[in-house]
Amino acid sequence: MALTSASVPAQGLPKTVNIATNPAGTLYYGLTSGIAATLAANAPFKAEAAPYSGTSTFMPLLNEGREVDFGMVNAVDMGMAYVGPGKRKIGGKNPFRRSPNVRLVVRGGAMQVGVYVPKNSPIHHVRDAKGRKMSGEYPAHQAVWYNGLGNLSSCGLSWGDVNVVPVPAVNDGMDALKDGRVEVSMHAVGSGKVREVDAAIGVRMVRICDDTEAQKRVAKTVPGYSIMKFKPGSSVGVSEPASAVSYDVYLGTSKSMSDQVVYEVVKGLWNGQKTLFTKHPILKRWTKERFASDEVTIPYHPGAIKFFKEKGVWTDAMEKHQQELLRESM
């Protein structure tokens, strides 16, 4: 049961909060476990990862403030869900139910989703994926559909240029690659699932188009996306120069969540930076300097704003953007 302002006693705090995330083996699950461990050591309550098949599954629960207390989500998905399909579409669609009650706790670090093939595949660039069997659709995990659209768009391609093999969610796509049912799939760079499939069959991350014009194509196709380049040996499966789409990761909640609980979560992550950085290499990107920003896609929770104001990092520009976002969902 989620902890709303009504279910948290005014004089106390919960013993445990949950953080909805993607399944075990995904990068999100690894990051969430690290955040939960950091809060256990630096906040007045414990936290635990609550795996779901994907963002599409738990976003409605987060919006309603039931079953889910917090959620690990990406900036693009959250922005689309916040205003709803009536106001914003990307790639010609918005599959997310309107979620005007979601609020931001902290803006975390960026993550990347790469395109993977078996290591002996003749495919070395995403251009080579044209006409090939590629895992797609992702009805339980729509974020991955956008990951694919962004990666393909770097070279002026779209989902219509590949032979889509439907899979429910991101891990299923890599399982299909392992089993030989697809020739191309995607996953978060450096994730446990990529390591698992690499151990089974050997995988290689391919390069997407990553020049200045490609950056512009990606940003136009999926606003909020950029491109990151990888040197050989920098991550599992990166045996030659590679690149992938990149975007911010958020820790979100519902506006019904207790101000004090959110305040303590932000405080725990702020003061627990040393602990946080040891829990996962990518959590080193979750620096406190990134937590408050005027470039976010959903409004902050009042409990987070209270903490930021106490630390002197909440600016006039952030307040202006906050009010603009609140009006946007009306």
Rank of each mutant, 00 (worst) to 15 (best):
K279D: 02
Q322S: 04
K311P: 03
K288S: 13
M318V: 07
T275Y: 03
D248L: 12
L251R: 07
E295S: 14
Q260P: 07
Y247E: 15
T253D: 01
K255G: 11
V265Y: 00
F277A: 11
E310D: 14
K284C: 06
G268T: 11
A304P: 04
K311R: 15
M318E: 09
A292M: 10
L283Y: 06
L276G: 04
V313F: 13
E295P: 01
I305T: 02
S258C: 07
T315R: 08
S256H: 11
E310P: 02
N271F: 02
G268E: 13
D316F: 09
S254C: 08
E295T: 14
F308A: 05
D294G: 05
A292Y: 01
I282P: 00
K306G: 00
L276K: 06
L269Y: 00
V265H: 00
D259H: 10
P281Q: 11
D316K: 15
S256M: 10
D294M: 04
S256E: 14
G268I: 08
P302W: 01
Y263M: 05
H321P: 01
K284R: 15
S293M: 12
A317H: 14
L269R: 02
K309N: 13
G252D: 10
W314G: 01
Q322A: 08
G268N: 11
Y250G: 05
M257Q: 09
A304H: 00
W314C: 05
V296D: 01
V262I: 14
Y247A: 14
G272S: 09
A292P: 05
V313S: 12
Q273Y: 15
E289H: 13
H280L: 07
K279A: 08
F291N: 02
F307S: 01
I298S: 05
E289R: 13
E289K: 13
K320Y: 07
S256P: 02
L283G: 06
R285E: 14
E289D: 15
T297D: 10
V266D: 04
V265C: 03
D248E: 14
S258I: 04
K274V: 10
K267H: 11
H321R: 15
